[in-house]
Design a binder for these strands. Structure first.
Length: 262
DNA sequence: ATATCTGTTCCTCT
DNA sequence: GAGAGGAACAGATA
């Protein structure tokens, strides 16, 4: 799941379940996602600390404690946070934090494609990794300017985390569906007005997804995402089957009726 | 057994 | 150099 809205849900989940709790024990079940941090250092950094705040930027979630380095999490293709009232960690857990109240927060990521890192400086971290401004936290004019740093297909530009952070395959399909634009449209062929509409659509889609707590069944019928993955998915607006094409190497849903031609 | 999948990075070709 | 496509990473699921 993890695109911007999902990570936003994880952030709110972490805040609700784990903020202001002292970490009694840290366990690392699988060290493959650890990026530039050893198991001992991760444990030393977190044990005895209290989670004080969280911040999302794009698809990254940063968890700060009352100690020094900040924990940086990327959920890859399959990651999520799971809080339990006992000490058991689910299958596919990367690491888990046991709090003094006996509850556990686990990063569960079966496919292990995400990242666990530490950083002293979140801004520097984002810069090093060439992560652009958060897609929802950037003002209109800059959003347009960022998209215009690319001249190829609009879907590729929007999925590029260096252009804008947070939009992935599904979010981009949803925003282009909402704005009636074909994913293969060249950025140079878009008006500023159309790019602004994409920004508004991304905000709206995110709100709906967060409201649904990232559950597909909780989404309005009118959204593409509600139908994505169904066998004979039809455009809820035009009632015609979606085209499934490849754009930027990713499966892309397009309504042949209202999303024009490329 | 084969194909697909919400992300990212690296490689090749144009 | 920029853009596009493919492969690889890993594991679950159809």
């Amino acid at each position: 799941m993890p695109e911007l809205p999902h990570v936003q849900v994880f952030k709110e989940y972490a805040d609700a379940t784990s903020l202001h709790k002292r970490i009694e024990d840290v366990r690392v079940q699988d060290d493959r996602p650890l990026d530039g941090v050893s198991i001992p250092r991760l444990k030393k950094t977190l044990r005895g600390r209290t989670l004080t705040s969280s911040r999302r930027h794009g698809k990254w979630l940063f968890l700060a404690t009352d100690g020094d380095p900040v924990l940086a999490l990327h959920f890859g293709m399959s990651g999520q946070l799971v809080h339990t009232t006992d000490a058991k960690a689910p299958d596919g857990t990367v690491f888990s934090l046991r709090f003094v109240d006996g509850s556990t927060l686990a990063m569960v990521m079966p496919r292990m494609l995400g990242k666990v890192a530490l950083t002293e400086d979140v801004e520097a971290f984002l810069e090093e990794r060439e992560i652009g401004p958060d897609a929802l936290d950037v003002e209109e004019e800059r959003f347009v300017r960022r998209v215009r740093t690319r001249s190829g297909m609009v879907k590729t530009a929007l999925m590029d985390q260096g252009v804008l952070a947070g939009l992935g395959n599904e979010m981009v399909d949803e925003t282009l569906f909402m704005t009636g634009l074909h994913p293969r449209t060249k950025v140079d062929d878009l008006s500023d007005k159309e790019i602004v509409a994409i920004r508004r659509a991304a905000k709206e889609a995110t709100e709906r997804i967060v409201e649904a707590r990232a559950r597909r069944e909780g989404l309005p019928e009118s959204m593409l995402l509600r139908h994505r993955g169904e066998k004979d998915a039809k455009c809820p607006r035009c009632k015609v089957p979606f085209d499934r094409i490849k754009v930027g190497g990713r499966t892309t849903y397009v309504c042949p009726e209202h999303q024009g031609a490329s």
